[in-house]
Design a protein around this nucleic acid. Structure first.
Lengths: 218, 218
DNA sequence: ATAAATATTTAGACAAACCTAAAACATTTA
DNA sequence: TAAATGTTTTAGGTTTGTCTAAATATTTAT
C-alpha cells in the first residue's frame, strides 16, 4: 500500500464508526483533505485491489481485507503515540501529527518490538484502545466520572465545564488530560468520590465528578 | 524536501566522501537505484532550489545548504539505528532498512527528544559518528586492533580473517560486530592484549588482534 | 411529481518522479 | 588527432495522485 492509499483506508475506517458503515465520497474527501473527484479515482483503485466495496453514487466501505489493513494502521498509530508520550515526553496534544507519519513505516518487527518495549499497552494517551496484532480490541466509551461504577478505571479525556475556575481546580490537583483515574469509592451521603490518580488518592466533590469525562473499556 | 529529494541528497553526500567532492551522474544513479537520465532531472531541480552545485557533464556536489540537510538526515538515520539496537533489540545488520524509512520523519522535537532518550550517543551501532544538532561530528577511521594505542576504545566493525575457526572463537568469547571494545593494555613480550568488552576483561593473542577491525574516533 | 439543490462521477489536464531511445559531449585508444 | 567508447543530456512518454469544469445521478422541497 502506498502512503496515499493508507490515508484513504484510515479515513474510510474512522468514518465508518466501529461498524464499517458505508460512507460518502464527500466525507472521505473532507477527511483526507482532497476533492471528491480524487476520492472517486482512489476508491476505484482500492476497489480493484479488493480493499473496499464501492458502488457508484452509493458509497464505500472496507472489505475484510481492508479492515485488517486499517486495524494495523490504527495499531501502529496508537503504539507510536504511547511511545511519544511515555518515552519521549511529548504531551497529549502534540503526538498526533508525528504519529501520522510514523504509522506508515513498514516493518513488522519494528511494531512487535515497540509493543514489547512499551509493555503491551492496551490504550493510547487519548484513551483509545490499541488493536492487538491480530486485530482484536475492546471498544471504549466516554462517560462522565459520576456515571462510572466504583472499581473501574479510565482515562481523562475531556471536561464538560471549561470555565477558568474549573480548569484551575484541575491544574491545582494535577489532573490532566491523558491521566489514568481509578474510581476508588463513592460517598452516598454527598455524592463525592475518592479517586486514585498518579498513584495518589484524592477526594473530589459530586460537582467535579459531573464535569469530568473519562474513557473506559466496555 | 520530498522523500526522493532527500534520497538524492544523501547519495550525493555519501559519494562525496567527507570532503564534498563532485560526483558523477552515473554514480548517483547507481546509489539511488535509478537511471542516469532521472538523476539529471532531479539534479537540475535541486540546483534550482540551491541544494546542489551542478555543471552539465561535469558533476554535482552539495552547497552549504545541501550539506546542512545531508547532515540532518545522517543524524536522524544514525539516531534511529541506535534506538533500534539499544531499545528494541534489533541486531547490527537489521537496522539499516528501517532507519532508511525513519530518517524521513519530519519533527525536530522528535529527534531532539530521541537524542536525549538515548543519552546523546556519539556513534551508531556501526561505529559511525552521529552529527550534533548543529552538524559537527568527529571523523572515524577503521583500524586493526593491533594498531590501536592502549587506552582508546572503538567499535568492532569487521574481521580480516573470516574463516570458521576465527568466527567460532569470536562467538565463544562473545565478541560481536557492534560491540564496544576498550584496549586495556598490551603485553610487550608476546604482543597479546587485554581488552574490555561488555564490562568484562578478556585476554586475546596477537594473532586475534591482527584480525579484528575497530572503528575509532580520530 | 417535478423542479431545484446537492452529491458524485467523468473527462481532460497537470506535476512529480520515473522510464527508453536518441543525440550530444567527453575521454580513451590507436 | 580521428575513431571508438563511454558518459551525460535531451526529447518524449508513463504512472500516481491530484485538480477543474462539465455531465449525471440522487435527494429535497415545493
Amino acid at each position: 500500500m502506498t502512503l496515499s492509499e493508507e490515508d484513504y483506508i484510515k479515513a474510510i475506517y474512522h468514518l465508518g464508526k466501529g461498524d464499517n458503515t458505508t460512507v460518502s465520497t464527500n466525507s472521505v474527501a473532507e477527511m483526507v483533505e482532497t476533492k471528491p473527484s480524487s476520492v472517486t479515482d482512489m476508491v476505484k483503485k482500492l476497489s480493484d485491489k479488493g480493499v473496499v466495496n464501492y458502488r457508484p453514487y452509493k458509497g464505500v466501505n472496507l472489505t475484510e481485507y481492508g479492515q485488517k489493513i486499517a486495524l494495523t494502521l490504527v495499531r501502529k498509530h496508537r503504539l507510536w503515540e504511547v511511545f511519544l508520550v511515555e518515552k519521549l515526553g511529548f504531551s497529549w496534544d502534540e503526538v498526533h501529527e508525528v504519529a501520522e507519519q510514523l504509522e506508515h513505516i513498514k516493518s513488522e518487527k519494528l511494531i512487535d518490538q515497540l509493543d514489547k518495549h512499551l509493555g503491551y499497552p492496551q490504550v493510547d494517551p487519548h484513551g483509545d484502545p490499541i488493536p492487538s496484532k491480530t486485530g482484536e480490541f475492546k471498544k471504549t466509551i466516554k462517560k462522565l466520572l459520576i456515571d462510572i461504577p466504583v472499581g473501574t478505571s479510565g482515562i481523562c479525556v475531556g471536561v464538560k465545564d471549561s470555565s477558568p475556575p474549573f480548569l484551575k481546580f484541575l491544574d491545582k490537583n494535577k489532573i490532566a488530560l491523558g491521566d489514568t483515574i481509578l474510581i476508588v469509592d463513592k460517598e452516598e451521603f454527598d455524592g463525592s468520590f475518592n479517586i486514585q490518580i498518579n498513584k495518589k488518592n484524592i477526594h473530589i466533590s459530586n460537582q467535579i465528578a459531573s464535569n469530568l469525562y473519562l474513557k473506559i473499556s466496555e
